[in-house]
Amino acid sequence: MRTFILILMVLISAFAKAQQQPIPLDTIYANDTKNVALFFPEPIRQGITGSDNFVFTYNREKEQYFGLLQAKPGKESNLLVVNRNGSIFSYIVRYKKQLSKLNYFIPLSNSIGNEKTMVTDSIQVVTSERNVDNRTYYYQKFCSYLLNRNQRIGRIKKRTQGIVLNVENVVFDKEELYFVIQIENNSTLDYDLNFLKLSIETRQKGKRKSLQRLHQEPIYKHRLPSKITEGKTVKFIYVMPKFSLSEDRRAILELNEKDGERNIEMKLSHRYINNPN
């Protein structure tokens, strides 16, 4: 009996030590030319990468079982995914130029744990706050990805007195349009930004033709500068709610200098808005 108790104590001690040891994380490889699909046992509620050179996209409006991973060259990072039922999955993610695997079917046994149950009265508030935080976090990650992406929608430039306004790209994702904007200061004076506005201009038909402008407020601004020093170039992004334009409408981008006259007004044809990347 005493021998049995000793054996039992050794097994319990070994099990406790094993539980304290960190669980080794699997590695998922991705690159910037292919989408790597991750299929989970339950719909994805949240997915976060630890570095800007990795982007994990999934449907935030309608929960689905899969997400897509892309990567830019850089240091390895991690991916944390939470399913609808609270199951947590964690992976090391690395960039790899040549991929041998594009689809990962992840079993529930790969879960590293489960979230704690929330108090019933606080579910609605916590969920609402999480949705806002998740949306902002997604905008940050996707904007960082676009700024590192070498893609252009065309040569849309306008300049005045050494200041160059350039719309490099217009990208559609989920329910938003991302305007990738660049300002070059080739003058010998710093440029203090007063505002940059995006408006929709409509040509009124009739005997007395007139123009009507409706200002569009961005839902998120990424790296918008307050000053562009002489000889420098800055790039930033405006995230707008999705919209389209008829042939009698166009978008207007207004760049205004604080306490100065180096202002630029750029017209964007409906073709660029209706055919984003």
Rank of each mutant, 00 (worst) to 15 (best):
I44D: 02
I88R: 14
R223S: 03
I264C: 05
V10Y: 11
I219S: 02
Y238M: 04
T27L: 09
I112M: 13
S269K: 14
S144N: 14
T3H: 13
K96P: 01
Q151T: 13
R135P: 00
S77A: 15
E265V: 12
F105C: 10
D133G: 11
L68A: 03
A37P: 01
L68E: 11
N186L: 11
E261S: 15
F236G: 00
Q64R: 08
T136R: 15
F54A: 06
E168P: 00
N186M: 07
R130H: 13
L108C: 08
I228L: 03
F179R: 08
K62C: 05
R152L: 10
L8R: 14
L224H: 03
A251Q: 04
R45M: 08
R155T: 10
Y29E: 11
Y91N: 06
L245V: 01
T33V: 12
D248Q: 09
N53H: 08
H222T: 01
L177M: 08
E247N: 06
I219T: 02
N274F: 12
K157M: 08
Y58V: 01
S122N: 14
L80D: 06
Y178P: 00
L245G: 00
N277T: 15
L80A: 07
E129L: 15
S90V: 11
H222R: 00
R94K: 15
K17E: 10
D192P: 05
R60F: 00
G47P: 01
G260W: 07
Y137L: 13
L80S: 10
D190R: 10
Y178R: 05
E230L: 07
N274G: 10
G206E: 05
S77E: 09
E257G: 02
Y29S: 07
L102P: 01
N85Q: 09
T120L: 12
R155G: 04
E184L: 07
K207P: 00
E168T: 08
Y58M: 02
V164E: 11
Y104F: 12
L108R: 13
G231E: 03
R84S: 12
N131D: 14
K242G: 00
L211V: 02
E61Y: 06
K116S: 09
L177A: 02
T3W: 10
I252Q: 04
D173M: 13
E230G: 01
I28R: 11
I5A: 15
R262W: 06
I106T: 09
A71F: 01
I200R: 14
K197W: 09
I264L: 13
